[in-house]
Simulated scan of single mutants.
Amino acid sequence: MSKIAFITGASSGFGKACAEKFAANGYNLILNARREDRLNEISNVLKEQYGIQILLRVFDVREQQAVSDAVTSLHDEWKAIDVLVNNAGLALGRDYFEEADLDDWNIMVDTNIKGFAYVAKAVSQLMVLRKQGHIINMGSVAGKLVYERGNMYCATKSAVDALSHAMRVDMLRHNIKVTAIHPGAAETEFSVVRFKGDETSARNVYAGLQPLTAADVADVIFYTTTLPPHVCINDLVITPTQQADGIYMHRH
């Protein structure tokens, strides 16, 4: 069987772009998202275009039992996961700390930290059995440098940064690679979700910038999986040329 990549949050953005990139390189895919209609559409296109096998797993990463069931119920041939792209996550709101919506905070913590960890733990247990595999965790420049009105989102991505380091340390004895990818400004559905459908505010985030595309980030993610077995990129920040970090940008 061809190599297998398990991609969460695969219905849009980085996840969808990663599905396309790995499919184009002959990987069979396990794709996760909450939106089954989108997953079906993506799956049909990729199977027709690349002749690969695709298994769909529709669940919310916040639901611990659903995550566990989705992984443990895999048939043996699908348990040989070579790459996990642990991508599902989101930002909600750009409010000052004292004005923030607690529901937004809870959703981000439950998705970006707890759901992220549920998936990584479940899949890593399969990789440990084979003493091989590559876990790719989607972080953010927001996890490297806190910015105004970023509060809980920055905190969750800081946790992703720390947990990625922890995974890398703990997985050493199992020969498993762990790579944290921290994108900067990238024009996907991310900002539309963050601003709760306000497309004008979402577009303003990228005003005067040539932002990254989802495909740019997927290219880098795939590259990290092509290195020799003894080489692991632990931590990688990728931004547009006009952006240095989570704060400093040069807009035209």
Rank of each mutant, 00 (worst) to 15 (best):
V160A: 11
I233L: 11
R34E: 05
D198L: 01
V237T: 14
A207R: 11
V123T: 04
L39Q: 05
V193C: 06
Y153K: 01
Y27M: 07
L84N: 10
G93S: 04
A215Q: 02
A142F: 06
L29H: 13
G89I: 01
D95P: 02
R38F: 12
V141F: 09
I238N: 09
V58N: 06
I233W: 04
V67H: 12
A5N: 03
M108D: 01
Y50L: 13
I238D: 09
S124F: 05
A66P: 13
S164T: 01
D235V: 07
V119W: 01
V146W: 09
Q242Y: 14
Y147T: 09
A117D: 02
Q125L: 13
N112M: 07
K16E: 15
L84D: 06
Y248T: 08
V178L: 02
Y248F: 15
V146Q: 06
Q242K: 15
G93T: 00
N151P: 09
A214S: 15
A180F: 05
R194H: 03
D219Y: 02
N44L: 13
E63F: 10
V119I: 11
E77C: 06
D60A: 04
L39G: 07
L129S: 12
L209F: 14
A23T: 01
V83G: 01
N137V: 08
A5S: 14
L209R: 08
K121H: 13
L92G: 10
I54C: 12
G139N: 12
R251K: 15
A19Q: 08
K47I: 09
Y206E: 05
L74D: 11
N204W: 11
G93Q: 00
G139M: 03
A244T: 12
S11E: 08
A88P: 03
Q242G: 10
Q64M: 09
G197P: 08
W105K: 05
H165F: 13
L46Q: 11
N28Y: 02
A66I: 09
V61L: 03
K177E: 00
D110T: 09
T226M: 03
R34K: 15
Q53K: 15
A214F: 08
T188C: 03
L46D: 06
L55F: 15
A166N: 11
I135W: 01
A70S: 15
I54Y: 13
I52M: 10
A88M: 00
G89H: 03
G184F: 11
E36H: 13
P183S: 03
I4L: 04
E63I: 04
Q53E: 15
I42H: 09
V128T: 10
A80Y: 10
V178T: 08
R173I: 05
A202G: 12
R168G: 04
Y50A: 14
K131D: 01
E148R: 15
A215Y: 02
P228C: 00
F195A: 03
S11H: 11
F116P: 05
I233N: 04
M171Y: 08
L90D: 07
L236M: 07
I7M: 12
H134D: 03
Y50Q: 13
V160E: 10
A80I: 05
L29R: 05
G184A: 11
F14H: 04
G184K: 14
G246D: 05
N87E: 03
K131N: 14
L172K: 13
I233E: 00
T179Q: 03
F14Y: 15
K177I: 01
A10S: 14
P228D: 02
I233Q: 02
V205M: 04
L129T: 07
T188Q: 06
T8Q: 12
H252P: 10
R251P: 04
